[in-house]
């Protein structure tokens, strides 16, 4: 029996309890999932925006997963505290949708793709392989990330499950 750990908007969860599944719902936000398969440490961040405050606030956010740059570093630090080795960590991600039609009129309507692009860039910079992703389109995704297996299950309305 699994225990679901809900990750809130802008939040983070890290676990090495193999009975746990980290879960969140994403639209234009991205569920970033990192995994150390040897130590079986998993982390999930619900990333809302590409950068921390565009420099306007020196304190950034109290929400550890809100901004892509802070989310990756916070996940790596929290996973290391539970025994993960950065060189073994692999990434998967899902979300980044364009939720409302009539796109192109405002930056909000392509924030999803910008979130995903920024995460790809940061992961590359940190040397973390992005092994699979399910990004874009115009629908929400329910994501479940298993601490035991590192499998990311993505459930989409009217079209079933995808396993990453």
């Amino acid at each position: 029996m699994h225990r679901e750990v809900q990750v809130d908007m802008g939040g983070i969860a890290v676990s090495n309890d193999e009975s746990e599944v980290l879960t969140t719902l994403v639209g234009s936000c991205v569920a970033l999932c990192l995994y150390d398969p040897y130590a079986k440490v998993a982390g999930m961040a619900h990333v809302m925006l590409p950068k921390s405050n565009n420099g306007r606030s020196p304190n950034g956010s109290g929400k550890a997963g809100k901004y892509a740059d802070q989310a990756v570093d916070n996940l790596l630090r929290m996973m290391a505290e539970k025994g993960a080795e950065p060189r073994r960590i692999r990434a998967k991600m899902a979300g980044g949708a364009n939720m409302f039609s009539h796109e192109g009129s405002s930056t909000v309507f392509n924030i999803g793709e910008r979130n995903a692009e920024e995460l790809r860039r940061i992961l590359r910079e940190r040397g973390i392989p992005l092994v699979s992703e399910d990004i874009g389109e115009n629908y929400g995704r329910l994501t479940r990330f298993s601490v035991k297996t590192g499998e990311l299950v993505v459930v989409v309305r009217n079209s079933g499950e995808r396993r990453l």
Partner: peptide, 14 residues
């Protein structure tokens, strides 16, 4: 105006 049909929580994000 943008229109969408989806899960409430995902439409709260924008």
């Amino acid at each position: 105006p943008g229109l969408a049909i989806d899960m409430f929580r995902t439409l709260l994000e924008p």
